[in-house]
Design a binder for these strands. Structure first.
Lengths: 343, 343
DNA sequence: TTGTACGCGTTATCAT
DNA sequence: ATGATAACGCGTACAA
């Protein structure tokens, strides 16, 4: 079913069908209705490829997500969901590209083949080849996250530095003197993943400001790693009474390790973190955490991208959010650990 | 950068460039290298729309996911992730369409505009307009889930009926005499959502076979609903000692309700369910559940779809899986409930 | 190897 | 207001 067929059956010219659909030239009501009747009958829809080829835009955006194999965290999934929803509201389709590096085939197809009008990039590193590649390509893009040159691109991001600092201050206010940061995986930190670095910085700063003792640990993104990571922290630091963390996926394991050590939360040990609201609420007990507004962030990213597509030369926009810490069930006054002789 | 430009700079015809890239006609090694040099220098990649227009295929598959607003369950997200990964391995891109009904704009764009070579459909209902629409369109498609006419399409699915029956039998073996089924939301059941209906059937059958007393409840897909649903079940049925469930998202709430009733798991009360392995393991205590192999199912769906695209006339294929129940920490011998006078 | 028609929708032009 | 015609976007594949 193509436009020529519709024209033939309606007894009009191809161009008339096109104009009837686009309204870019007046078409009499009678012919318009006749054409529409045929279209409805045959269920015609213009070929998206032909349209894209002619118009030079695809009405599709690319969403670059962390690559295969690695399991996405709840927060990342929330971003994906919110981007897809926001795009659908703007009548944009979303093409997913699970790509980590610049030379990923999927990434190259999406960026190089003009399959999309713009790209939303997730899990950005401080230095990121994909950002370089996208800038070189001239394709509009928006980061969920940012590089170490934040003024050179549009982005939305969480202020992990502030958030972790707030967690530490909250714990300090409760009397905790010895806290740990459970960070994202060491590979990510080594690869220059921004949130991991910024969480570090915020933690170090806050700990110094409050004259506390702080330890940092990296932890893989899963429950098992959370168990061993916190298990080790508890064993190595008898004075430790609290943990701050940005590692969502490890949280269930962290709870387990604390329980296995014979400690209760929040009676003997406190946890504060950064997580999506649902995730924090589903933990048991519910986690005191800065609630990440993934929905708004994703929607905002789409919004920025749509604007950038409309005017690629416009100034860059940024949005850095630092949601407040919601007090739930996992932080309480510091109490020396039962088996801790020193600390 | 288009193929004409490459041809000009290489001093050859456009078609020669095309043949040099596709290898569908011999091109002398010297010219091939000259062309390649120009391509590398300019970073040329063929325009995907033009290619799709000419070839009649997009090398893209559509993935229809549950629509906006409703939060996707962990299992649904696992399906999405596995489909995207499997597609990437096959060098296929994935276009996401968050659509519930047939008249969804996004759905129509994807199906009607020939934007994709095939479609994977999630959360299928026993009678599903989208299936009708897809069949009418002639576009190859594969279901993750199936309608009540399972022989008319290709699909992969979980055998919820068997799985829930197994959970019930497991509970019966442990001496439980009075169990409840916590199903998916009532709207889904009313809308004819297959898994909800099949879970019902499996539950009723197994309960009858073992001469048990069974109650059924629908529950929204979130923890809060889980709390109130199980809270009500516990209050209304003093003899109840176990729950079987397919409602992942409600599970954390179910745990909470049981705890609030002063019962321990699995000492006083047992839970068995159907869930992704990660989800089951992350619960506290880890859930005894049939571990849904979402990765394999998603990959298999992509595989079926690829085959269907290659040969749309081929016979339909199906895959019904019933993974075994992994015993974890939530089921134990039946024990009359502390406050239960009758039972 | 080259020239060219084709896939399909859009839009400008000239004419009615 | 509408028709007829053709150019265009870009890659592919057949005939020459």
């Amino acid at each position: 079913m193509n436009i020529g067929e519709i024209a033939k059956r309606s007894g009009v010219a191809r161009s008339t069908v096109s104009y009837a659909l686009s309204g870019k030239r007046p078409v009499s009501e009678t012919t318009r209705r006749r054409i529409q009747a045929v279209i409805d009958e045959l269920g015609y829809q213009p070929n998206a490829s032909a349209k894209a080829l002619k118009e030079g835009r695809t009405r599709t955006i690319g969403l670059v997500i962390p690559p295969a194999g690695r399991r996405l965290t709840d927060m990342q999934l929330s971003f994906v969901a919110s981007v897809v929803d926001a795009a659908a509201r703007a009548d944009l389709d979303v093409l997913l590209s699970p790509s980590g590096g610049e030379h990923d085939r999927s990434f190259e197809r999406v960026v190089g083949g003009r399959r999309v009008d713009g790209v939303i990039l997730m899990e950005i590193r401080l230095e990121d080849d994909r950002v370089t590649r996208l800038r070189r390509s001239g394709l509009p893009f928006v980061g969920i996250g940012r590089t170490d040159r934040p003024d050179e691109m549009s982005w939305v991001d969480l202020d992990y530095e502030t958030l972790i600092a707030r967690c530490v201050h909250h714990l300090a206010d409760l009397g905790h003197r010895h806290v740990a940061l459970v960070n994202r995986p060491g590979e990510l930190l080594a690869a220059g993943y921004g949130p991991a670095h910024r969480a570090r910085a915020g933690f170090s700063r806050a700990v110094a400001e409050r004259g506390m003792e702080g330890v940092q640990a990296c932890c893989a993104d899963d429950a098992r790693a959370g168990v061993s990571c916190v298990g080790r922290l508890l064993a190595d630091h008898p004075g430790l009474t609290a943990v701050a963390t940005i590692n969502e996926a490890a949280m269930p394991g962290m709870y387990r390790a604390i329980e296995r050590a014979g400690l209760s939360v929040p009676g003997d040990f406190s946890i504060a973190g950064v997580a999506g609201r649902h995730w924090a609420e589903n933990l048991h007990p519910p986690l005191t955490a800065a609630d990440v507004p993934a929905d708004e962030l994703g929607a905002h990213a789409v919004d920025l991208l749509v604007r950038r597509i409309a005017d690629p030369a416009a100034a860059h926009h940024r949005l850095l959010v630092a949601p407040p810490v919601s007090l739930r069930g996992t932080t309480g006054p510091a109490r020396p650990r039962p088996s801790a002789d020193r600390g």
